[in-house]
Design a protein around this nucleic acid. Structure first.
Lengths: 196, 196, 196, 196
DNA sequence: CATGAATGAGAATTCATTCAT
DNA sequence: CATGAATGAATTCTCATTCAT
């Protein structure tokens, strides 16, 4: 019966869902478990979400919302592509590394099904890739990035590196901060293996 | 009542599982569906696998087996690290791109749960990363790769790029061959964004 | 859709279980059969019992509860041991003979397994034997029962006679009332075969 | 693949069944378990028994066979009823107490279902009760047993006492020999509680 | 006679979702 | 808005039994 301080019951449900799903996995988490942790009745969940899957979607949207808005802020600042990318990388790793439970969900639970990944890819991830692509284009225009790159491909490659780092961090239970590797990441992204 | 194709019944069950799981997702696939497609009785499944999850594990092992053995072959050949990596990248993309159903499973269904990913990561993926790391070390020793790289990190980054490409290919239903992007991938891996 | 008879849904389920299990035996009785007779959904059973076996346990407890409480009442009344035993014997036979379905369960179904009998023996039956033993002790102290008896053994012997009568009554489908044999039983218990 | 020394495969199967059923209970014992212990293939069981239940029946018959034949021998010897009963009681307790596994089966597993108990009661147990009844009649004719007894009832009472002793011995895991209580049993059977 | 791989019917149990209060 | 008791569809897994070899 934990009463929620900050605000809406919807938020409380999402907060509870993050913990339960990160701990037990989406399929092992029952609606009742989420309800109990959120301090509401089972049925109450359905006043805010039309079904269990929508909780997962909403979870993701809430998290991705911050992600993109902050990412876009970086991009919108007048910096150079090099600086922008640096900031995005750091932001990505910082945001993911901030909340392990949420990271588990975004790196593992959210990838449950083709259907689900499709949604992510088409929407939020797609938007994120678009932002990355814009930065790459800018870098090329500024003459700082190689001219022979396909920006769409490069965006995916960047995302791939960051995503793998995040997954690796989730799976290794070390306490090392994820963003501490931002330097190595940028180093690799900027120069690759350094083959001339 | 499809007759067993390649020989053993176990293989037939795995073959059937690939198709059904790729098509419907692991959780929506019932053991009965796999049995029907394999042309065996439901109970027969349990003569070869102790439970449903073990089918998924076995699926992965079978696929990863080829993967690693072929990957190791590339590495064991006396070529330079640059050549080795080229071959590995092509092999990776070719193998994944060869069977879309299997790719769906490896890129999506196999990542069902933390528990499951842990297994993958600790075992086969870990071994794969080790191979990549060795190639990076070799490249550094040969003077072709930058000396300031952390080989472990670089291996993960390479894997991240390839893995993202694979996932992207699975999600985009285009018919474009996955290995056709091997050149772009190598280009990126070798030189990154080209920031000097 | 039989409407609940006595009040609570739990009772309705137990009532239904008595009938079904007596009629078909524990193993041939499905949870669905009990649910249907009780007029509830299958899942509802599990709101009141954690599994099928617990229904059987609860059945027994409910029945044995009355048994012991009434038995103890007899003992607690200030009568002589001879009178007490008479009353207990009559009560035992009357209670068992009152409901043939319940008798089938207590004499047959409840003795399913070592595990199960252990439970019974350690708990309710043990308590019942203790009561019988107390009566025997009292009878000896009053000088009405032989002094050379082991009360613990005597209690078991008494229980054995009553239990065999009950089982015999269940198996013989005659309509003869079980308690009509109380006289013979007491006669035997008091004097045995009359060997001097 | 233990090869059986003494004789028939049928016996080996029954021997194996006694152990497995005593250890795990009838329902938890699979035909495969019995087959493995007997050192035969699953299918072989069905060359000797038409189904699983028949194994249980046969088990009982084999055991009861000795029982009755030895019991009848006692009766057929020219002794007095008092002596006969003494011998029967000792024999009963000795035979049951000789093999705990078999005792578990006869006291617990064999009482699985109404259907099953019916069979027992109508056949072997019925015959055993008949023998006991004859002894009681003889005792009355000899003037050693009370004249006012119903021999049929007395036989059941005697059986009830012995049966309860056997069950009690099975459930109490003490090592005390069952036949060591033959004296107490006879004492009780001959004189009851000694109420005059 | 013996085998043991294959069968497939069968049942307990779970849990997302509803709806009367 | 909130509740939580009730629902009942859905699915894994077991195992007695068969039968081709």
């Amino acid at each position: 019966m934990a009463r929620i301080s900050d605000g809406t019951k919807r938020e409380a449900i999402l907060d509870a869902a993050v913990v339960e799903i990160a701990r037990h996995g989406y399929h092992q988490t029952t609606v009742a478990m989420i309800a109990r942790r959120a301090g509401v009745a089972d049925g109450t969940i359905y006043l805010y979400f039309s079904n269990k899957e929508e909780i997962l979607f909403s979870l993701f949207e809430r998290a991705m919302g911050r992600f993109i808005s902050e990412g876009r802020t970086e991009v919108d600042q007048g910096a150079s592509a090099t600086e922008k990318l640096s900031r995005i990388v750091e932001l990505h790793l910082t945001l993911v590394g901030r909340d392990r439970d949420l990271a588990i969900i975004s790196q593992v639970e959210l990838r449950h099904s083709l259907h689900f990944m499709d949604q992510l890819s088409r929407n939020q991830v797609g938007e994120y890739l678009a932002i990355l692509g814009q930065v790459v284009v800018q870098g090329m225009e500024e003459g700082n990035f190689r001219a022979d790159l396909d920006p769409v491909f490069a965006a995916k490659a960047i995302f791939g590196v960051l995503d793998e780092m995040a997954t690796d961090w989730v799976l290794s239970r070390k306490n090392k901060r994820l963003e501490s590797q931002a330097g190595s990441a940028l180093d690799f992204l900027f120069g690759g293996l350094g083959v001339s």
